[in-house]
Write a protein that binds this DNA or RNA. Structure first.
Length: 236
DNA sequence: GCGACAG
DNA sequence: ATCTTGTCGC
């Protein structure tokens, strides 16, 4: 269990979560090196970021592990917009694995002018046949966008890649068992709501024939927090 | 008032 | 992220 102190500010997610993710990787490295994953699926963006360097890039550089940014919402940056045109493109993704490149209008890659058609470093991906909502995959560290998209898709039993999904589920369970037991909403009684604690405000992989390369994700802060005035409770 | 808003 | 309301499939 960890206690997050830095507030969540869009564009600065890494400053809030990376210290804890890094510590986990380091502990794994010294205590269970055999379980060290070959790649990390990070709940957040890689280069699809205001400054081209999201949490997946931070963690990748600090751990020297290949990282993939897996976001559930489009970070509208560099001219990218979740507008009608974008939604139409999403609608055209027919089956799992279908994707399209997200190309900003800056004409730069990682902030460096190319003077050439900029290669996309992120894509919208339909990860499952049964889910219309896409995943926004972006290069984090030491992996091509193509490999990142394929790997992510191969990890999807449902919309969210299993490593991220399982981390999410277990972390929420851990929080539920420690702090009160809000438990998942039953959806039974329409009027069963807990009192509000806080009034307002605060308010490179498949080498060899050995399949099953990656595993382990990182995924951090679940939801639990929001009790005192700002933020606490992390997990794992 | 309205749009944005990775988690 | 969290919260609501509503729909659909198993």
């Amino acid at each position: 269990m960890v206690s997050l102190t830095a507030p969540y500010v869009s564009g600065f997610l890494a400053f809030r979560e990376v210290p804890f993710l890094l510590e986990l990787v380091q502990q794994l490295r010294e205590k269970e090196p055999g379980l060290m994953p070959q790649v990390l699926l990070v709940d957040g963006n890689g280069v699809l970021h205001h400054r081209g360097f999201g949490v997946a890039c931070h963690l990748g550089v600090l751990t020297d592990l290949p990282c993939v940014g897996v976001a559930k919402k489009l970070l509208q940056v560099d001219g990218l917009e979740n507008n009608a045109l974008h939604k139409e493109k999403i609608r055209l993704l027919q089956t799992r694995g279908d994707s399209f490149p997200l190309l900003g209008d800056s004409g730069t890659v990682l902030g460096m002018p190319t003077g050439q058609p900029s290669p996309s470093l992120s894509q919208a991906l339909r990860s499952h046949d049964r889910s219309t909502r896409p995943l926004y995959i972006s290069v984090g560290h030491r992996m091509s966008l193509e490999a990142a998209v394929r790997l992510t898709c191969c990890c999807c039993r449902f919309r969210i890649p299993e490593p991220v999904r399982q981390a999410d589920i277990s972390s929420r369970e851990h929080i539920r068992k420690s702090l009160g037991l809000p438990g998942p909403r039953t959806l039974r009684s329409p009027k069963a709501q807990r009192p509000v604690a806080c009034p307002k405000r605060d308010s490179g992989e498949s080498s060899g024939g050995a399949p099953s390369p990656q595993r382990q994700a990182d995924r951090t802060t679940p939801g639990g927090r929001r009790s005192t005035a700002q933020h606490q409770v992390g997990q794992r």
